[in-house]
Computed example of a mutant assay.
Amino acid sequence: MTKRHITNLACGTALCGALLGAAPASAAHHVHLVHPGESIQKAVDAARPGDTVLVLPGTYRESVKVTKSGLTLRGMGPGTVLQPAKKAKATKKSAAAQKSCAEMGNGICVVGTKSKPVENVTVARMTVTGFSRTGVMAVGTANLNVHGVAAVKNGQWGIAEERAVHSTYRDNVARNNGDAGLFLANSVTAEKGATDTAGTVVEHNLLEGNRIGVTVRRLRNLTVADNSVTGNCAGVFVVGDENKPKAGKITVTGNQVVKNNKYCPKTARLAFLQGSGIVLTGTENTLVSRNLVTGNSGKSPLSGGVVIFKSFVGATSDKNSVTDNSLSGNAPADLVNQEATKHGNAFKGNTCKKSKPAGLC
Results as ranks from 00 to 15, higher is better:
residue 200 T to K: 04
residue 292 L to S: 09
residue 67 T to A: 14
residue 290 R to L: 10
residue 44 V to K: 03
residue 175 R to P: 00
residue 184 L to A: 13
residue 205 N to W: 12
residue 142 A to F: 11
residue 305 G to I: 03
residue 247 A to Q: 07
residue 329 G to V: 07
residue 304 G to F: 03
residue 328 S to V: 02
residue 285 N to T: 08
residue 260 N to P: 02
residue 81 V to P: 00
residue 184 L to N: 09
residue 360 L to Y: 07
residue 48 R to Y: 01
residue 223 T to Q: 15
residue 340 A to Q: 14
residue 114 K to V: 08
residue 5 H to R: 10
residue 142 A to H: 14
residue 149 V to E: 05
residue 289 S to R: 13
residue 5 H to N: 12
residue 206 L to Y: 10
residue 12 G to P: 03
residue 73 L to K: 09
residue 306 V to R: 13
residue 45 D to C: 07
residue 171 D to S: 13
residue 48 R to H: 11
residue 315 A to E: 05
residue 97 A to G: 15
residue 338 Q to T: 04
residue 64 V to T: 13
residue 183 F to T: 01
residue 112 G to K: 12
residue 36 P to N: 08
residue 330 N to C: 10
residue 122 T to K: 09
residue 268 A to G: 12
residue 275 G to R: 05
residue 6 I to S: 01
residue 269 R to A: 15
residue 104 M to E: 06
residue 240 G to F: 07
residue 338 Q to G: 04
residue 132 S to F: 00
residue 306 V to I: 15
residue 138 A to F: 03
residue 147 H to N: 13
residue 195 T to N: 04
residue 11 C to H: 12
residue 108 I to S: 03
residue 177 N to E: 03
residue 216 V to R: 08
residue 104 M to C: 01
residue 318 D to T: 15
residue 40 I to N: 02
residue 197 T to G: 02
residue 139 V to E: 10
residue 252 V to Y: 07
residue 188 V to M: 04
residue 331 A to M: 12
residue 235 G to D: 06
residue 59 T to H: 06
residue 141 T to G: 06
residue 251 T to E: 11
residue 78 P to A: 13
residue 272 F to G: 08
residue 163 R to F: 02
residue 69 S to C: 04
residue 33 L to Y: 08
residue 7 T to W: 00
